[in-house]
Simulated scan of single mutants.
Amino acid sequence: MAGRLGVAPATLRTWDRRYGLGPSDHTTGRHRRYGPADIARLERMHRALLRGAAPAEAARYARSSTEDTDAPAEPPRRPAHRIGRGLRLPGASRRARGLGRALLAMDAPAAQAVLAEAIAEDGVAAAWDQLAGPVLAALAERELAPVSHLAAQCVRAALATAEVGAPLPAHDNPVLLFSADPAALPPRVLATALVQRGIPATVLLAAFPAEALAALARRLSPAAILFWAADPGQAEPRFFHRVKGRVPMFACGPGWAEAELPDRIRRAGTLAETAARLEASLG
């Protein structure tokens, strides 16, 4: 059931414990089975959360919709943010606004539900480019550290879930993904997108000297190397000069925008574009 909805099993247990939206049919042993009515309630709960409703409100809607034929056809929406004004998300999608509302309300289950649906429909990298990345940038603009921390946790949880059931690696050597920022999320997002494509990936998030990074790259013989930099202070062009051989190398992130790079270095675009380019070059 968790896979059908795109939520974590722990989320289903929480909905059962808090709101009574669990399976009703008993089988032998300790297991219970979801019946059609249970599934319908959970799907209504999920849709309401994706529209930004509070969990308790969504649960009331889910229960009333199966018990009252005159219940409203549209799931409820959250009427207001709980933490100050909303986020600046010009041209944002319904999902982005829903994710912003859930995070501002510190509602982790709702935020994870939005992320899971986006990943299931659009893929990990596109979900970052179009949804999580813009929302986290808007949170950083508001300087809401606790909300940003929760958002990062939700993204990491979504990535861990997305890697479950990934195909076995089709290559022996990994793609190396570097960043000087230990909290950087884009390299982790890209690694998950590659793993889903059967491409092994190793993420290293630390401000190591260029010489040390180049030595590691030589020792591991990676299939490709990508260096993520969120700002110019994290960009280290010397690293690319230290790496010898013909391994494909990519400079990714806004930090490289003004950096002078060797001709053989490829400037990467969005994470979705980069994942596709890496898959094509390694295929």
Rank of each mutant, 00 (worst) to 15 (best):
L12Q: 02
T14K: 10
W15K: 05
R18C: 06
R18K: 10
L21R: 03
G22Q: 06
R30H: 12
H31I: 08
R33N: 04
A37M: 07
D38G: 09
E43K: 06
M45D: 03
R47Q: 10
R51F: 02
P55Y: 01
A56H: 12
A58K: 00
R60Q: 12
E67F: 01
A73L: 15
A80C: 06
H81E: 11
L89W: 00
A96C: 02
R97A: 05
R97S: 02
P109W: 00
A110H: 00
A113F: 03
G123M: 11
V124W: 06
A126S: 15
A127N: 06
A127Y: 05
P134C: 06
V135F: 08
A137K: 14
R142W: 10
E143N: 13
L144M: 12
A152S: 15
A157Y: 00
A157G: 12
E163S: 12
E163F: 03
G165A: 13
P169E: 14
A170W: 02
H171L: 15
L177H: 01
L177W: 04
F178R: 02
A180T: 13
P182Y: 09
P182V: 07
L185Y: 05
P186L: 09
P187C: 08
R188L: 14
V189L: 09
V189R: 00
L190F: 05
L190D: 01
T192D: 07
L194A: 02
V195S: 04
T202D: 10
L205N: 04
A217Y: 01
R219N: 09
A223G: 12
A223Q: 05
A224V: 07
I225M: 11
I225S: 02
A229E: 06
D231A: 14
G233C: 13
P237M: 12
P237K: 10
R238E: 15
V243L: 08
K244G: 13
G245F: 11
G245Q: 13
V247W: 09
P254N: 13
W256N: 04
A257C: 12
A259Q: 14
E260N: 13
A272W: 04
T274M: 06
A275H: 04
A275F: 06
